[in-house]
């Protein structure tokens, strides 16, 4: 296995080659890199690969220390549809 074939995002199986090519072609931020490749958009919500995706994007862009590079959105854990919207009076 070469570096290019190495998986970076384990959930969506996005490779190092795909990410570095995309970053080079578009000079993009982490967020754009994520949207273009699906890296960080899988089951774990990017908890595992976010620092790696960030590192690739930061080669082309400057870090803004006040902005979380890959935004978090609810739910931060996968939820079964059946479990959403249930109101319990605890």
């Amino acid at each position: 296995m070469t570096d290019r074939d190495m998986i970076v995002c384990r959930c969506e199986e996005v490779t190092y080659g795909e990410l570095t090519d995309t970053a080079e072609k578009f000079g993009c931020t982490s967020r754009e890199l994520k949207l273009r490749t699906r890296a960080g958009m899988g089951y774990c919500g990017g908890r595992t690969c976010r620092s790696l995706v960030d590192a690739i994007a930061l080669a082309a862009t400057e870090r803004d220390v006040t902005q979380i590079t890959l935004k978090y959105q609810p739910p931060v854990r996968p939820v079964h549809f059946g479990d959403l919207g249930v109101i319990t009076n605890d």
Partner: peptide
């Protein structure tokens, strides 16, 4: 999986409970 501030209290959503 989610938390939110509603009026002056905090709601914590955990699995199927709030």
């Amino acid at each position: 999986h989610n938390i939110e501030q509603v009026n002056s209290s905090w709601l914590v959503h955990a699995d199927c409970e709030t």
